[in-house]
Write a protein that binds this DNA or RNA. Structure first.
Lengths: 215, 215
DNA sequence: TGGCTTTCGCTACGAGCCGTAGCGTAACTG
DNA sequence: CAGTTACGCTACGGCTCGTAGCGAAAGCCA
């Protein structure tokens, strides 16, 4: 847990003034927890604001004081789960890749994570604001894992240094999309498990390319 | 257009008997077309059965005679779009990969495709039957592109032959998840364009591995 | 041709959810 | 204490869902 910056930044910020009764932090936590629980049981389309309110032991109006709609609520409810991702130094580039792949797969193995992630992505295809929210809350944060992994590999001499910062950024984006995309596709579209053996074979492909598959 | 086997296999099959008024083929086409149009304008969550019926010039009850719910309808409406994917021989493994990546990116560039694909995937995380429907209608069909591409590359001497059929199948699945996953993630999650330059760099990474990125 | 079967468009309906308004009460500030 | 804001609760109009029932249309078969 490094970041922790998931402060209570609602879409609907409380009035700038400082007086009056403050919003209940317990209600915040209860609502987000109830949202995750409801996602697990009901899935994306059958999740209702009324059900979340009931589970959280909170009035429905309290939800609407904080979030304007279902999409905003679910993004916030799930974003904190991604904060758990870490990248401890496992000694080699391949070991680092394998480790983060398995870690990400565990995260996507949780029903609320995969349901919510795909749901908000689907909505974001017709909602520009939501797209930006996903990018800042999830995508940009996770890229740090790639940056860190490359930096270590370069220090070990496993990868060449990249002088042009723009090219380095492009490579970071590319690697991120390949790693995250493969795990997401394997887990959610192909609906096959990401186990240690798959992680090992994927890492070999990523590090050495197609010709390495039968080696 | 090779397959074409997207015959009118409704979830709700007409009564096995052969007598009586047949279902209107024009209505079928109009409904599926209206579904795609509605996806573009309204997105996944705001698409309603009544709206689709109105657009198609058809009674709402006619929809429910064919499809039990929104998920089934959308899967069928979008599945045919994937039939357009081809894999012409472009002379080399790299060229074949680049070609199919750009082709797949074009497909995902259509609003109805990305909205529908992510929407049904999200629903499939809590719907086993829908998951199977996606696998058979989309995943398994597209894998043929990978099989064909590998076969050609082996014939050219670009890739070694694989004796063990089980290992070959595992490699096919792996490559499929990496290619499709990267394109989907780049397009929908990172929300960045898949252009010719990205396709070229992705192909280099896939064929030769991480160390090739700065070459 | 007539009889049988199934689909069609149409209308109507109960049920459920959405998002908001209004009220009295609770909590915190100066 | 007065002022301000959040809270729980109730109620509401509006929309969508999925189904039922009707008469008419469109096929098949004797």
């Amino acid at each position: 847990m490094v970041a922790g910056m998931s402060s209570s930044t609602y879409p609907k910020a409380p009035r700038a003034g400082r007086t009056g009764r403050p919003r209940s932090a317990e209600a915040d936590a209860a609502i987000l927890e109830a949202t995750r629980a409801s996602l697990v049981e009901l899935g994306w389309s059958k999740l209702t604001m009324g059900d979340v309110a009931t589970r959280a032991g909170v009035a429905k109006t309290t939800l609407y004081r904080r979030w304007a709609n279902k999409n905003e609520l679910v993004v916030d409810a799930v974003a904190v789960l991604f904060d758990e991702l870490e990248l401890p130094d496992r000694g080699s580039l391949a070991a680092d890749v394998e480790g983060v792949v398995l870690q990400f797969a565990d995260l996507l193995g949780q029903p609320e994570t995969k349901t919510a992630l795909m749901g908000v992505v689907a909505e974001s295809t017709t909602d520009e604001a939501l797209r930006g929210r996903i990018r800042s809350a999830i995508v940009e944060r996770q890229k740090r894992l790639v940056v860190e992994g490359r930096r270590r590999a370069q220090a070990r001499g496993e990868l060449p240094y990249e002088d042009d910062p723009r090219a380095a950024a492009r490579n970071t984006d590319l690697i991120f999309d390949v790693v995250a995309g493969a795990v997401v596709h394997r887990t959610l579209v192909s609906a096959e498990p990401v186990d240690a053996e798959w992680a090992r074979r994927f890492t070999a492909l990523l590090v050495s390319g197609l010709s390495s598959l039968t080696a």
